Amino acid sequence: MQSLTDVQNTAFMAIGPSRIAALSLLALSQGQSDSADTEPKAVLDLSVQRLNAAYAMLGSGLDELLEECRYSLPEPLEAKRKACRQVLQPLHKAISKSEQDVLQQLRAIPGLSDLCLFQLEPVISDFLKDMVHNLREAQQLREVQREENMRTTIANAESVGRNIKFISFNASIEAARIGDMGKGFAVIATEIRDLSGKTQTLLEEISSYLKH
Score class of each variant (00 low, 15 high):
Gln2Met: 08
Ser3Val: 12
Thr5Pro: 03
Thr5Val: 14
Thr5Gln: 11
Asn9Arg: 13
Thr10Glu: 13
Ala11Thr: 09
Phe12Asn: 14
Ile15Thr: 12
Gly16Phe: 15
Ser18Val: 13
Leu26Ile: 06
Ala27Asp: 11
Ala27Val: 03
Leu28Asn: 05
Gly31Val: 05
Ala36Arg: 10
Asp37Leu: 12
Glu39Arg: 15
Pro40Gly: 02
Pro40Ile: 02
Ser47Asn: 01
Val48Ala: 02
Arg50Trp: 02
Ala53Met: 02
Ala56Gln: 06
Gly59Tyr: 00
Leu62Arg: 06
Asp63Trp: 03
Leu65Lys: 11
Leu65Phe: 15
Glu68Gln: 15
Glu75Arg: 11
Pro76Ser: 03
Arg81Gln: 09
Lys82Cys: 00
Lys82Thr: 02
Ala83Val: 01
Arg85Met: 10
Leu88Glu: 01
Pro90Trp: 00
Lys93Glu: 03
Ala94Val: 00
Ala94Ile: 00
Ala94Met: 00
Ile95Trp: 00
Ser98Trp: 00
Asp101Phe: 00
Pro110Phe: 05
Pro110Val: 04
Asp114Val: 09
Leu117Asp: 13
Pro122Met: 10
Val123Ile: 15
Val123Arg: 12
Val123Tyr: 08
Val123Trp: 07
Phe127Cys: 09
Lys129Phe: 15
Met131Lys: 05
Asn134Glu: 10
Arg136Gly: 10
Gln140Ile: 05
Gln140Arg: 07
Arg142His: 06
Arg142Asn: 11
Glu143Leu: 14
Glu148Tyr: 01
Asn149Cys: 08
Asn149Thr: 08
Met150Asn: 09
Arg151Gln: 11
Arg162Trp: 04
Ser168Ala: 15
Ile173Leu: 11
Glu174Ala: 14
Arg177Gly: 11
Met181Cys: 03
Gly182Phe: 06
Gly182His: 05
Gly184Val: 08
Phe185Tyr: 14
Ile188Pro: 01
Thr190Phe: 06
Glu191Ser: 15
Ser196Glu: 04
Lys198Ile: 02
Lys211Leu: 03
